[in-house]
Each structure stands twice: as C-alpha cells, then as structure tokens.
C-alpha cells in the first residue's frame, strides 16, 4: 500500500465537444495539502466531481486509498475517507449551524428507520456522541457560540467555516475544498487558511481549489496548475509559480475570474 490517499491516472472527461479534463495525473499523499489552480473553466470543479463520483470519467482511473473507485457510486466514496465542499457553499437553510455540521454524520447512522423512530438507547447514544463531536468541531472553527444560529444569520466567513466543518464531521482522510476563500476578503481568507493549516496532519490531506494563489503558495505543499483540462505544471509552489508560462496562465485566470 502506497502513502497516496488519492491518485488520478490519465483521467479524461468530455462534455459534448468540450474536453473538460484531458489525461490528468495527480496524486495526494497522506497528510499533504495540494492546491489546484487555474483560470475559470480549466476543469478544476469537474476534477472534484470525478473524484467524488458525481461525474464519471471517460478514461483513466481514480484511486482512493489505493483502491480503484471507478465502479463505486458517489454515496459510497465517503466510506473510503472522502469528503468535499462545494463552490457555492451548500448549506441547509432550514437547519441551524450545529445541524449543518451534524449533517456530515448522517451516513454514520447505522440504526435504521424503525430504531430511529423508536429512539432506542443506541440511537440516542449516537445522537449524543454526534452532538459532542459537532461541538468539538465548532469549537475548533471558533463557531461554538453560533451553534444555534440559522444559516442566514451568519457571515460568509462563518458559512465557509461551517461547510468545512461539515466535511470534517465526516471524519475524512481526504477533504476536497472547492474555493474555501470564495467571497472572503484578504483578512478573512488568511484566517481560513490558518485554520486549514492547523487541520491538516498525518490523518487529513487536503486538496484545495481557489484563485487566491498568494495564500495557496504559503499553505500548500504542492501546487498543480490546470488549463483547458490539461495539467500545465505541478510541483512545489515556489518552483511552479516561478515558471513564466504559469505566471501568464494565472494572470489570465485572475483577469477572467474577477473577484471570485
């Protein structure tokens, strides 16, 4: 068994005539933070969709924990330690903050419908331990006192943190973060970056998509640059960013992407 949590080997994906991903090779080692950058439409989110199983690749293989997951449906992949967030922070407005975290633990519920309806001791213990864990996560993210708030009563920064927290609640070994700095100002973004840095460790690897290259440069162990579905460069952030070609891609990307 290798130390790789995630491996993509020659992954390609087309949507009609558009080649969203073209022969992508990428790996994330245990405990690593890998950043994925590139202009809009480069295929970053498609790559996340393929890894999480919402889209199926046309060619190539995706391995989670060394296991080929091509035939594993999306909802089974979290069992292999995968969690992800979405670009537009998907939160559940009908639920409050702590419930938005608890949602990440729904899948861990074995008890079944009838037991849940009878609220057996087992179900109730589960609920209890889930709640304890959810509060631990909230504390970690500095949201402890926001637990009872509705999602529309908290700031964008807090929403981003909640969606990270929901991912953590799934107890993943690899967390895919789609634009965790989206909609945040520089100060807030660096706060999120600091939290991400503190979260990563031997048990948790991160694969991060964002446009804020300056933050990612400091945060990431490795940086991968995508353009038009192709891997343009990959390696240590300083080395990758030093390349002239990469600079022009990202400059283009930043113009095209605006603030987002």
């Amino acid at each position: 068994m290798t130390g790789e949590v995630l491996q993509l080997r020659g992954v390609s994906k087309r949507f009609g005539g558009v080649c969203a991903l073209n022969g992508i090779d990428l790996s994330v080692e245990r405990g690593e933070i890998v950043a994925l950058v590139g202009p809009n439409g480069a295929g970053k989110t498609t790559l996340f969709d393929v890894v999480s199983g919402l889209e199926r690749q046309d060619l190539g293989r995706v391995l989670l924990q060394g296991r080929d997951v091509t035939a594993v449906p999306a909802h089974k992949r979290p069992d292999l330690g995968l969690a992800r967030t979405f670009q537009t922070t998907q939160s559940f407005e009908a639920l409050d903050v702590v419930e938005n975290i608890l949602v990440g633990r729904c899948r861990l519920h074995g008890p079944g419908l009838i037991r849940s309806g009878l609220r057996t001791r087992r179900v109730f213990r589960r609920e209890h331990s889930d709640l304890v864990r959810a509060f631990e996560i909230l504390e970690l993210l500095g949201l402890y006192d926001k637990a009872g708030r509705r999602m529309n009563q908290i700031s964008t920064l807090q929403r981003q943190l909640v969606s990270i927290g929901r991912g953590l609640a799934m107890e993943p070994s690899l967390l895919l973060l789609d634009e965790p700095f989206g909609g945040l100002n520089a100060e807030e973004a660096s706060k999120v970056a600091a939290i991400l840095e503190s979260l990563s460790g031997p048990d948790l690897s991160l694969l991060v998509i964002d446009h804020q290259v300056d933050l990612l440069r400091r945060l990431a162990d490795r940086l991968a640059v995508l353009r038009h579905g192709e891997m343009m460069a990959e390696g240590r952030p300083e080395e990758v960013l030093a390349r002239e070609q990469v600079e022009s891609i990202l400059a283009l990307g930043r113009d095209g992407a605006g603030a987002g």
Binding site: V103, R105, C106, H109, R119
Partner: peptide
C-alpha cells in the same frame, strides 16, 4: 423521533 434523528436530517439534505 425519526425526524429529530440523523434520518430527519438526511431527508432534509
């Protein structure tokens, strides 16, 4: 009981 358990949240998701 059902709706206040993880099931209820899963339904809402």
């Amino acid at each position: 009981n059902l709706c206040s358990s993880g099931y209820g949240r899963a339904f809402q998701v």
